[in-house]
Design a protein around this nucleic acid. Structure first.
Ligand SMILES: Nc1ccn([C@H]2C[C@H](O)[C@@H](COP(=O)(O)OP(=O)(O)OP(=O)(O)O)O2)c(=O)n1
Ligand SMILES: [Mg+2]
Ligand SMILES: [Mg+2]
Length: 694
DNA sequence: CGGGGGGCCT
DNA sequence: AGGCCCC
């Protein structure tokens, strides 16, 4: 959705730049005349597709009666988008409900806080595009970039006469079809491919959208909105500076956000031309060399960032906002609801999350829509595995983890006022990482989650099949029916102050207080004996889980596993078929599940809430080491890397990180920089991760 | 009366 | 852990 900023900025200076597209620079590296098949074509053909009023379209498919009425999609007090009937009545995107109703009293509203249907449709679009061409990069839920360079070259080679065909759709700044396709055969073919893809999206999925065809992501995106609903536009290279100059302000340049625009404005830079002509040296002073150069290039319409296959998402999150939340009990309930849904999604994804993050937003009179705070922690392997395998009882432990993180941010003895809570799984791993003793081998196999940044090559096609192959992830198709409300049926008095009986060290009091009474009793009767016998001396090679012992297990019924007809599906594929679907994915809830089988497991490896004295396996910390004093550094160093990492993070969790920080900063441990093979640091370019450099 | 997601870099 | 970016 466009930026809500309204800028009154119009300038019409003609300014010609020698459009030496940066792509050319890449091929210059060799020699003037490329030898052998050019690894990178001199000119790329990039498509940008943007669906029309996306959420509204999805709702109109779900309920066709909505097609003829003005429709707004409502998230809390915001109309996040609306159909074109509503737009004719003056309703706009990101308009408040009151304003919208004012403009259009008969506006029909559909709630859109639950993104499930939109997300599902979004991936259907991406998958459909990938079935024709693997190089697809997502941007949000309703936009995709497609690099069709190879497809164009192939058509040129196989049917040379196709180069004389005309353009499909609009050509920027040209009237009708007087543009000579012969001068731009590749772009013309690109416009045909765009038309075909849009037609496929329409016929198979029932969606309409716009497309832009140009030589870079930047230009394709900019040109795609030229003719708004359900049309496409091609940008010829001789019109690059024209389209850049036509932008009403620098904010319209993708990658120039609110903060950057403010800083530029302070320098007197408001229009795109201002930016083009602004002395580079001054720009460097403000933004640093690489960002400055990037900004200037963008203003000139230059962008050589590749279309990077997006692959499976890097994180899954779920959030809710509200006017006020001020009790621990409500927080617990909310976190449980969010996590229940998130765990479900995670299970369907099939990968195993290694990291959990909790984010909050606090109320403050000024600054209301700002500043979130977050805390994150590693997810012990055995809990992560439960999510993936759908064993059901992961939820309790995750809620407990989340509450611990919550207490790291919020002192519940003092009044607080939250307006948002977000739960997030990140560091998603395709395979369960069993911490076997053949460490180096495991970690070798373990690395692949997504091809994302692992491929550095500027030229795409060669590494293609590899990247596609690595996209394969386990996708569990089973409909996870476990709507676990394990610990919400409390009839107990939720006492904020500690009236709770003394609990075993691995029980979170927040969770405990909300358990059914008989569960509480059972816990109390078993807990101590078990907690004495279970931990420490953790059997075997599962060294990674030493600190994450299980508490007593109360099970009245083994969790009934849905048969995991887990087919290893791919997110990307090079064959086109299936995708045929008419039945909406919504399945039925298994009724046999309603007898909520209580299958509880105590929060593992989690001590009581912040700052308790009950830790029974207290460790002392050596002052200059990253690990506890009772750990032999030599033994530690011989452990597999990923085991080391897990141990480290577990220990770090236990450190007294509390609020009222002890001022000193811990240096950067030499350990495990990052797992996701993020290796490719490459240039320190910030600014446009969006149009990221090669 | 300012949603609910995502991404990457520092 | 936060910042800034995208939709
Ligand atoms: N700040 C934003 C921007 C967008 N969206 C959602 C709602 C949109 O339906 C969807 C796609 O965003 P677009 O900017 O493409 O807007 P639309 O597709 O709704 O309308 P258009 O027809 O102008 O593309 O993303 C959102 O929730 N919050
Ligand atoms: Mg969009
Ligand atoms: Mg759109």
């Amino acid at each position: 959705m466009e930026n809500s900023d309204e800028e009154v900025d119009e300038d019409e200076t003609e300014w010609r730049s020698s459009f030496t597209d940066s792509e050319v620079t890449a091929s210059v590296s060799g020699s003037t005349f490329s030898k052998t098949p050019p690894p990178t074509p001199a000119q790329r053909v990039i498509l940008h597709l943007d669906l029309d009023c996306f959420y509204a379209q999805v709702e109109m498919i779900r309920n066709p009666a909505l097609r003829s009425v003005p429709l707004g999609i409502q998230q809390k007090y915001i109309i996040v988008t609306c159909n074109y009937v509503a737009r004719e009545h003056g309703v706009t995107k990101l308009m408040s409900v009151t304003d919208a109703k004012e403009k259009c009293p008969q506006l029909v509203l559909v709630k859109g806080e639950d993104l499930t249907h939109y997300r599902e449709m979004s991936y259907k679009v991406t998958e459909l595009l990938m079935s024709s061409c693997p190089l697809v990069e997502r941007l949000g839920f309703d936009e995709n970039f497609v690099d069709v360079t190879e497809m164009v070259e192939k058509r040129l080679k196989e049917t040379p006469e196709s180069s004389s065909c005309s353009f499909k759709g609009h050509v920027y700044n040209r009237l009708s079809a007087d543009a000579k396709a012969g001068d731009h055969p590749r772009l013309a073919l690109g416009s045909h491919i765009a038309a075909e893809l849009r037609e496929a999206i329409n016929s198979r999925l029932g969606l309409t959208g716009c497309a832009g065809i140009a030589t870079s992501k930047l230009l394709a995106k900019l040109v795609s909105g030229s003719f708004k609903p359900n049309q496409q536009t091609t940008l010829l290279s001789e019109d690059i500076s024209e389209i850049m100059s036509s932008l009403s302000g620098i904010r319209k340049v993708p990658g120039v956000g609110h903060q950057t625009a403010k800083r530029l404005q302070a320098l007197g830079v408001v229009s795109v031309q201002d930016l083009q002509l602004f002395p580079l040296a001054d720009l460097v002073k403000e933004f640093g060399a690489s960002s400055a150069q990037r900004l200037r290039n963008l203003a000139l319409g230059r962008d050589d960032t590749p279309v990077t296959p997006t692959g499976a998402p890097q994180s899954l999150s779920d959030e809710d906002s509200f006017k006020k939340m001020s009790s621990t009990k409500d927080v617990l309930q909310k976190i449980q609801d969010l996590l229940s849904s998130l765990v479900d999604r995670m299970h369907k994804d099939g990968r195993q999350p290694q990291t959990f993050r909790l984010t909050i937003r606090r109320y403050s009179a000024t600054n209301k829509w700002f500043s979130r705070e977050s805390r994150q922690c590693p997810i012990p392997n055995h809990i992560g595995h439960k999510i993936t395998s759908g064993s059901g009882d992961a939820l309790v432990q995750l809620v407990s983890m989340a509450m611990k993180l919550f207490h790291k941010m919020v002192d519940s003895n003092t009044a607080f006022h939250l307006t948002l809570i977000n739960v997030c799984f990140a560091n998603l791993q395709s395979r369960a990482a069993s911490a076997g003793s053949k460490g180096s081998i495991t970690s070798f196999f373990k690395q692949g989650t997504s091809p994302k940044k692992t491929q550095s090559s500027a030229q795409n096609q060669v590494t293609l099949s590899n990247s596609v192959a690595s996209w394969i992830i386990d996708l569990d198709v089973t409909w996870s029916t476990v709507a676990h409300r394990v610990c919400c049926t409390s009839g107990l008095h939720p006492d904020e102050t500690n009236n709770t009986p003394k609990l075993p060290p691995n029980v979170d009091p927040d969770v405990f207080r909300h358990l059914p009474e008989e569960i509480q009793r059972e816990l109390l009767s078993h807990a101590y004996a078990n907690s004495l016998s279970s931990p420490l001396t953790p059997s075997t090679s599962q060294a990674a889980t030493v600190a994450a012992f299980d508490g007593p297990r109360i099970s009245k019924n083994p969790p009934q596993q849905c048969p995991p007809a887990s087919k290893t599906a791919l997110w990307s594929f090079s064959d086109s078929h299936n995708l045929k679907d008419k039945k909406d994915a919504v399945s039925s809830v298994d009724p046999s599940d309603r007898e909520t089988t209580v299958n509880l497991q105590l929060p593992a490896g989690l001590k009581t809430a912040a700052g308790d004295t009950v830790m029974e396996e207290r460790r002392t910390w050596s002052s200059d080491c990253e690990f506890p004093a009772d750990v032999d550094p030599k033994v530690f160093s011989e452990l597999p890397l990923d085991v080391q990492r897990e141990l480290m993070s577990t220990w770090k969790q236990q450190r007294p990180v509390l609020k009222t920080p002890s001022s000193w900063k811990q240096g950067r441990g030499s350990v495990t920089k990052d797992r996701k093979a993020a290796g490719k640091s490459s240039q320190a370019n910030n600014l446009l991760k969006y149009f990221k450099p090669n």
